[in-house]
Amino acid sequence: MFILFHLFISACGIILNTLLIYAVMTKTPENMNKYTLIILNVSFTDLFLCFLDIFVIQRLVSCGTAVVYISMGLCSRFSSSFCFLMYTIQMHLYMHSIWMLFASYAYRYYVLVKSEVTRTQIQSFLMLLYIPSLVQMSNVLVEHGDETKAAEILTKKYPAINTSDLVLTTNSTIFTFSVMYVIVHMIGNWIIIRGIIIIFTEQNFNKNQYDLIICSIKKDAFAFC
């Protein structure tokens, strides 16, 4: 059931993001060309994220202060280290997708209250937002234990589990800089970014509401004249 759930969700994500990419590349109006940089960035990120999810299908098992990763996807045909590499890339894409959500709202807010931006400025902004996710991936790659260590931790917590057929990796403790960076980045940033998005949304709504009132006043004044 766990595997089927991942396959279903990821397949839906692949189909929908492929359709979105096609629509953006063929149906975008001329005046929205700059914004497509962000939309395509999000779409391709989510598309690769879904492919990797099918490839990895990772299950996390908490074992005290350690975390054991059980890889159940196609990567299990290769090696545990390869699965962990793919999972690390997947998680960094997930965080980049969240940052792109922030970029989308930030762009719309800036254009609404400030002025138009150039494609170069947008590209520079997106590259800047990619740095935290890249740092996350770089840190995590050096912080995982081998399959033997993972099996030892898992059987100590759950003695009845047969680990001989499982593809395992582990973080033997979460209390390292690399792992804590991931935890703070993935949980803390999600809360902060969602809060910022709510602020952007409210301010955009207030701005649009103000513009509608002004337009209505001008329309009434013109009709009166």
Rank of each mutant, 00 (worst) to 15 (best):
S43G: 05
S43E: 02
S43Q: 05
S43R: 02
F44D: 03
T45M: 10
T45W: 01
D46K: 10
L47V: 08
F48I: 07
L49F: 12
L49M: 08
L49Q: 09
C50V: 01
C50I: 01
C50L: 03
F51P: 00
L52Q: 06
I54A: 06
I54D: 13
I54H: 14
I54E: 05
F55S: 04
F55V: 13
V56K: 01
V56R: 01
Q58R: 12
R59I: 04
R59T: 04
V61G: 02
V61S: 12
S62W: 13
S62I: 14
G64S: 09
G64F: 11
G64R: 08
T65C: 07
T65Y: 12
T65Q: 11
T65N: 15
T65G: 05
A66V: 05
V67I: 15
V68S: 03
Y69V: 02
Y69R: 02
I70A: 08
S71W: 07
M72H: 13
M72L: 15
G73R: 11
L74D: 06
L74G: 08
C75V: 13
C75I: 10
S76Y: 00
S76C: 06
R77F: 10
R77N: 12
S80V: 02
S81C: 10
S81P: 01
S81M: 03
C83Q: 00
F84R: 00
M86A: 15
T88R: 02
I89T: 12
I89V: 15
Q90K: 13
Q90T: 04
M91F: 06
H92W: 11
H96P: 00
H96R: 13
I98N: 11
I98S: 03
I98Y: 00
I98G: 09
I98D: 03
W99K: 00
M100T: 05
M100F: 03
L101N: 09
L101G: 14
F102V: 09
A103G: 10
A103M: 10
S104R: 12
S104W: 04
S104M: 12
S104C: 07
Y105R: 14
Y105A: 04
A106M: 06
R108W: 09
Y109L: 08
Y110G: 08
Y110N: 10
V111A: 09
L112K: 12
L112Q: 11
K114Y: 14
K114E: 11
S115G: 11
S115D: 13
E116D: 15
T118L: 08
R119Y: 08
R119C: 09
R119L: 09
Q121M: 10
Q121A: 06
I122C: 10
I122M: 13
Q123N: 12
Q123G: 07
Q123F: 12
S124T: 14
S124C: 13
F125H: 05
L126C: 05
M127F: 12
L128C: 14
Y130C: 12
S133W: 04
V135W: 05
Q136V: 06
S138D: 01
N139R: 09
V140A: 10
V140Q: 11
L141Q: 10
L141D: 01
V142H: 12
E143P: 00
H144E: 04
H144F: 15
H144Y: 14
G145P: 00
G145S: 11
G145C: 04
G145V: 01
D146A: 02
K149V: 01
A150V: 04
A150D: 08
A150E: 04
A151L: 05
E152N: 04
K156L: 09
Y158S: 03
Y158Q: 08
